[in-house]
């Protein structure tokens, strides 16, 4: 393996890994905040891409504006999902498994709805930064770097939001101790909706970022969602920063693995990692409380 190949794989791995990281963070944010799993994070990623496509294409918005608008739209969508489906289920006594199943249903609904509304062909979004960047011997598509950059920016934004704003502190308090939070007057229902919205927005942004590279297709969220989930498990489910590390690791592992083994086994590597972690180390690399009695 030459240095050029190594670097190329590394950048590609980090790039796709950062997408897995964002999806994984979404899973973990929702779990930590609401103790629930939203299985449709991958499909929020997909819907975000289509919303971004609609803003850029038919509506002619500039790319970065579309990115932010799509993020906002997905935030509302995520919050609405919580306010409707999730609330009804938890009100009648439903628990994590019920919401998991309902969001599996949501995933199906979203894939079919998108196919009906946008059709089944792959939609293209032109990249805002076409061309490639020469990093030493390696040629990297600018969009890949943009994905990495936006991912980093999103993570930083989440951190700042959670740790430097009053509402972020409210969210952390509610995640820490729901009962105590409600006792001091925090509207936990509202906080939960924001949590779901935030997670959805993160996925949506990732979708809009990735679309110029691979196009937007109604099925694109399926494997990404599963891998994002694996990233969250590896990092310790419920730990967004662990998911970050887990996602990058998985992306790199997968890219190098696909180079060494044949490409079809690429997905298998991630699934194997997922199941090994679930069985052998369910608390993840960074020892989360989830999945532990």
């Amino acid at each position: 393996m030459t240095l050029e190949i190594f670097l190329r794989l590394l950048v590609a791995g980090l790039m796709i890994g950062s997408v897995y990281a964002l999806i994984g963070m979404a899973y973990s944010l929702v779990y930590r905040g609401t103790r629930l799993i939203n299985w449709a994070q991958g499909d929020f990623f997909m819907v975000g891409a289509f919303v971004g496509y609609t803003f850029v294409g038919p509506l002619g918005m500039p790319y970065w504006a579309a990115l932010l608008a799509a993020g906002g739209a997905m935030f509302l969508f995520g919050a609405a999902t919580h306010g409707t489906i999730v609330r009804v289920i938890t009100r009648r006594g439903g628990r994590l498994v019920d919401v998991l199943l309902a969001t599996i249903g949501l995933s199906i609904v979203l894939q079919n709805a998108v196919s009906l509304l946008w059709g089944t062909d792959v939609k293209q979004i032109p990249s805002p930064l076409p061309g490639t960047f020469a990093a030493g011997p390696v040629l990297v598509p600018n969009q890949s770097l943009a994905v990495l950059g936006v991912s980093v920016a999103t993570v930083v934004a989440i951190y700042l939001f959670l740790y430097r704003t009053p509402f972020g502190m409210t969210m952390r308090a509610s995640a820490e101790n729901r009962y105590a939070a409600s006792v001091v007057g925090i509207r936990t229902g509202r906080v939960d909706a924001v949590t779901w919205g935030l997670a959805a927005a993160v996925c949506g942004i990732a979708g809009v970022m990735l679309a110029p590279l691979f196009g937007a297709h109604f099925y694109m969220g399926v494997t990404v969602g599963l891998k994002g989930f694996a990233a969250a498990v590896v990092g310790g489910f419920g730990n967004p920063w662990g998911a970050l590390v887990g996602g990058l690791m998985l992306g790199v592992l997968e890219t190098f693995g696909a180079f060494v083994l044949s490409s079809p086994w690429r997905d298998a590597v991630t699934m194997l990692v997922l199941i090994v972690f679930l069985i052998v180390r369910p608390t993840g690399l960074f020892r989360s409380e989830a999945f532990h009695d």
């Binding site: 309902a102 249903g105 949501l106 609904v109 894939q111 709805a113 196919s115 009906l116």
Partner: peptide, 9 residues
């Protein structure tokens, strides 16, 4: 498919 997913939910 849409109907099916909605049924589940």
């Amino acid at each position: 498919g849409l109907f099916y997913g909605l049924m589940i939910i």
